[in-house]
Write a protein that binds this DNA or RNA. Structure first.
Lengths: 300, 300
DNA sequence: GAATTCATCTGACTAAAGTCAGAGATATGC
DNA sequence: GCATATCTCTGACTTTAGTCAGATGAATTC
């Protein structure tokens, strides 16, 4: 269960006036700075074409465009000499879009205008106000993203899960003074993290996996949480907490009366989160070589 | 001269990612919550029709719409039975738009959807995150507004100036323990606040006057600042500071080597601002009955 | 190797959003 | 009372944004 709360009507009024202020003000500026050159649609497409090209299919997914519509936008960009479209060598059904020299220049121009827009927002303010505005904008960006994070059960053998676990192992190898070898850790295999012996959840943002966690069920004994990881870039957004809650819920559903986990002193943020979530330190209950702190939490 | 600073490229990058996050995220939600019912254009028009009606001309100015386009939008709202359009009794060229019963219901529905949109942004977050988001949104809204404030020389006898001064006197009457009577204060007349004897500036936001200030030039002696006021609703946005700077610049242009002003102990924010702006307290230099603190600042 | 699925494209649409040039009626300044 | 300005409207456009139904050719599955 997520620790969400129904927002008060006062908060809603503030959000509404924010929506209004931001969409009218930034919308008007966007018309002014970006709108002049070309249609929004083709600008967006031009912007998504990375330096080493992008498949038409990926643009479609990214911008959620109708295939016919995108096709037409690409034809018009092609006519203007800004992009080339050719068959992908890997799968000749797929077509790959690449920027021409002129396209690269046009894309740089879009970037410049976007900078000008940003500058026009900041310029009238004092240095202190600029700092406060940028800070508040960062907070808004981050929390809007946080609201988009989805925590869901997943197959621990899936590509995204593998990638997440690999990122987790990498991080441990970097942070543990003596490095980390998953083979020496308990439960190196992921096949247990599935019904009926366990569970696995992935956190996603914009389709990308940005966190994971696993749980093992031990009938009549505490459930055991393992492999909790959150991507560096999204720390502080409450993702870890949500993963933890999903795993606890899974344990609860399996009749567990409590959950345990172990961790390492060098993972300070994780330890702080466990404590905040109601975990209390207990005597070592296993011989995980990488652990030096063991925790337990009763499930209400 | 305003105390503005050229923003760093790092700040610009943050603003850009904010623009992106906010326009895509809120834009998508707007399509979802508001777009379904009717076209954005007619929704915006419907929203602007206040309970006691609004002139077509005012809608056009508010929303910056082409007159032909607006006319057509109004015809379609009329056909749907949501508004009535009739000649204004004051000037029969002007037409006034009024909501019908159905229009009022439809407008309420728009408000409800706008609430839903706001709620959908907050709902997935924890109570703490919601609080942080709303705070940050308020800061952004306020500072975006602050960037729109214009401080400009104005005629002290104009309507906006009169209204600002009246608001100022009202506030003093409320805040001074013994009340305030402008007639007993020094320089009750505004005709001196104009070239060549003085100056007057107005601060505006969205066309509305939200602050003012006056200055008197005394050849060879310090210039003298008076009647500084900032609307309650926009305090803390640096408007006072900007008015002060505009008046100091006017004094500088007139060859003044320093500026003086006096104030009352009950105006604590004003006093804090004067000190922060480089004013130092001096001996009383006049017999303004409402003053108990006198300040001076050398002009660099 | 036939059937199916996939990626893209073309053609034929629609709705929204907006622009521009006047027309017609009314108000205002001199 | 005449010239000029103001306010709104209509008609005739254009551009943008998008939808939908196939057609085509390539890859995959059985």
């Amino acid at each position: 269960m997520d620790a969400t709360t129904a927002p008060g009507s006062d908060a809603i009024a503030h959000v509404r006036s924010f929506n209004r202020a931001v969409t009218t003000r930034i919308g008007a500026l966007q018309d002014h700075y970006l709108g002049s050159a070309r249609s929004l649609g083709s600008s967006r497409v031009l912007w998504e074409v990375a330096d080493d090209g992008i498949d038409v299919r990926d643009i479609r997914e990214l911008l959620e465009l109708d295939s016919g519509y995108l096709s037409r936008l690409l034809r018009s960009l092609e006519r203007e000499g800004l992009v080339t479209v050719e068959r992908s060598p890997v799968d000749t059904r797929v077509r790959t879009v690449r920027l021409t020299e002129a396209g690269r220049a046009e894309r740089a121009e879009l970037g410049r205008r976007s900078d000008e827009l940003a500058e026009s927002l900041l310029a009238p303010l004092s240095a202190g106000q600029q700092r406060r505005l940028v800070d508040a904008m960062d907070t808004v960006t981050k929390l809007l993203d946080a609201a988009l994070v989805q925590v869901e059960p997943a197959d621990a053998a899936s590509d995204d899960a593998r990638r997440s676990l690999a990122a987790y192992y990498d991080e441990l190898a970097r942070r543990f003074p003596a490095g980390f070898d998953p083979g020496r850790s308990l439960h190196p295999d992921t096949h247990e993290f599935a019904e009926p012996t366990g569970g696995f959840v992935l956190a996603r943002l914009h389709g990308r996996a940005i966190g994971c966690g696993a749980v093992l069920f031990h009938d009549g004994e505490p459930a055991y949480i393992k492999r909790m990881w959150v991507d560096d870039a999204v720390r502080g957004m409450g993702v870890g907490r949500r993963i933890l809650e999903a795993l606890e819920q899974a344990a609860r559903n399996h009749g567990a009366a409590s959950v345990t986990l172990e961790t390492n002193a060098s993972l300070t943020e994780a330890i702080a989160m466990y404590r905040a979530a109601g975990y209390v330190e207990v005597e070592p209950f296993n011989d995980e070589v990488y652990a030096d702190h063991w925790f337990e939490k009763p499930l209400g």
